[in-house]
Design a protein around this nucleic acid. Structure first.
Lengths: 106, 106
DNA sequence: ACTTACCGTAAGTCATCGCTTACGATTCGT
DNA sequence: ACGAATCGTAAGCGATGACTTACGGTAAGT
């Protein structure tokens, strides 16, 4: 449910492939697994992890289950990276300023 | 060097602690490891991974080595998440539109 | 009703990864 | 020059995790 679960979930290459396949919209498990180099149960396990991390939503539709990317989950991770980005830029700018000051003193 | 390495590096909790400690600016290894619940060599190994992922820069300063967050590395990851965010929102909007259409037909 | 399709779960295996201890290399201080 | 400090690396161990096969359960088709 936190950004930490999200980043852990996205760390796996196979799960990133799954996410990429869902960019266009929701898909049933069979369609997701079709053409992938792992078995369908493996895909199911990955879908479980992604769902638990808040990155996917599940919508049972008769026989099948449709998985789709959950914007909020991605948003959480995005916010975390935004703060990290801001801090990194600020620290970088300050370091550059001090460096310039030292260079002026030589 | 890619966003994939970055996301893999950030998946580890200990490495995220390290990153958080560097938000204020560059620090030597000893200062980073001080107060953490893992040994200093462990921190060194994590710093190696973060550097290889392009998330940190190293600046040898005499006896010590200063590690700082590399804005570009964070930026790469941020761009990936931005595209994912855009696609997720678009797919979500389209799904909502179709859902509304179906509801109107009942 | 019976078969087929779709999907999640359990059990077990194998690789990967994070940690510790021990060691070597380089630099600072005296 | 010698001892102390800072740091990276190697080796080894334990745990986590990703995968496969096998199975059960539910819905759709005929």
């Amino acid at each position: 449910m936190t950004y930490q679960d999200a980043i852990t979930a996205l760390a796996d290459p196979t799960r990133r492939v799954i996410i990429d396949r869902l960019r266009g919209g929701a898909l049933p498990v069979g369609d997701i697994a079709h053409g992938m180099d792992v078995s369908r149960p493996a895909v199911s396990q990955h879908l479980r992890v992604l769902s638990d991390a808040g990155l996917l939503t599940v919508t049972p539709s008769g026989n099948r289950r449709l998985y789709a990317i959950a914007p909020e989950g991605v948003g959480q991770l995005r916010r975390y990276l935004d703060t990290l980005w801001d801090d990194a830029l600020a620290a970088f700018a300050q370091a550059a300023a001090e460096k310039a000051k030292d260079t002026a003193n030589e």
